[in-house]
């Protein structure tokens, strides 16, 4: 049971990370910086609960805001670069964040114990849940409340004008600009929203694993973050969730019995998925099929997408 709860935790946290990249992908920005915001959320909220004994919700909120603030700042220079150059620039940002925490040593004595980030040794004492009597089921419920909240907000966004504007910018920013869309505002807003979502994910991750260090926030995790919405398809938020379940639940956990062969199969499965569903796991066909099964009227055109 604990094993499955653990997988649920991982899937929940990774879904938040994937959704933070999804928002940016809507506006056509491919960012490997989400892991940087994730790390900021993790360390900031961890420091607040451990060193300053804050309540978890306050710490998560501040962690998310700090991550969002850095995303806002990154948003402006990021406007000047596109495509591969943006990828490189955001990798650089993630590495700066990672190396900052790699060097951060801030040990404080709380209740007779030395706690806090200990540079190369990592930040090992994030025990908020255990110390306050939370059971693992509560932690899973907390993580998934955030996943559902964020997914609902992004789903709703597609039903109002703001969602159409984000997608318009992603499709053709010149045409969007010529239709009166303020590119700076839209792209920076998307970057900030992505930072906040990643920051919440990071805070939940730090507290549910009780331990973070610089090895956690490498480029590999950044690659996972963008892979989810790309593999899942950016037509719909559920694609990202499905991709996380596919990769974390099926490919990584489900193939554990294969030992070292798993890595080979991992790659093959992703290539296969991308070839069978080039528009993502949840593409137009998938959506219209579901709608038919639910008895609703399928959108006339979505099948051709």
């Amino acid at each position: 049971m604990l094993y499955f709860l653990g997988i649920f935790q991982t899937i929940g946290v990774h879904t938040l990370l994937g959704l933070s990249a999804y928002v940016l992908l809507l506006t056509g920005q491919l960012s490997l910086g989400q892991v940087g915001f994730f790390a900021i959320g993790a360390y900031v909220s961890g420091i607040l609960t451990v060193l300053f004994s804050w309540h978890i919700f306050a710490a998560l909120a501040v962690g998310a805001l700090v991550a969002g603030f850095f995303a806002f700042l990154i948003g402006f220079p990021a406007l000047r670069v596109k495509g591969l150059m943006l990828v490189v620039a955001t990798i650089a940002f993630s590495e700066i964040v990672r190396l900052f925490f790699f060097n951060l040593s801030w040990r404080v004595e709380v209740n007779g114990f030395d706690v806090g980030p200990d540079s190369t040794q990592g930040f090992r004492e994030i025990r908020y849940f255990a110390a306050n009597g939370w059971e693992q089921t509560h932690v899973v419920a907390l993580i998934w409340s955030f996943v559902i909240l964020v997914m609902f907000l992004l789903w709703w966004l597609d039903r109002v004008r703001a969602g159409a504007v984000l997608r318009a910018v992603g499709e053709d920013d010149l045409a969007a600009q010529s239709s009166g869309v303020n590119l700076t505002m839209v792209k920076v807003a998307a970057m900030t929203a992505g930072g906040v979502i990643a920051g919440i994910g990071g805070g939940l991750f730090a507290h549910s694993t009780t331990y973070v260090d610089h090895h956690t926030f490498t480029i590999l995790l950044a690659t996972f973050a963008v892979s989810y919405p790309i593999l899942g398809g950016h037509k719909n938020v559920f694609g990202t969730l499905l991709a996380v379940i596919f990769i974390q639940g099926f490919v990584i956990e489900g193939l554990r019995f294969m030992g070292d062969y798993r890595n080979i199969v991992f790659g093959l499965l992703i290539i296969l998925a991308m070839n069978l569903r080039p528009q993502g796991l949840v593409d137009g066909h998938f959506i219209s099929d579901i709608k038919k099964k639910l008895g609703g009227k399928p959108k006339k055109d979505s099948a051709d997408a």
Binding site: R167, A168, E171
Partner: peptide, 19 residues
């Protein structure tokens, strides 16, 4: 535009909604 630049993956309605 000289070469049509619509938001192809948005609906007709959404194209006008954005502008």
């Amino acid at each position: 535009f000289q070469n049509i630049r619509l938001f192809d993956d948005l609906t007709v309605w959404q194209n006008l909604w954005v502008a």
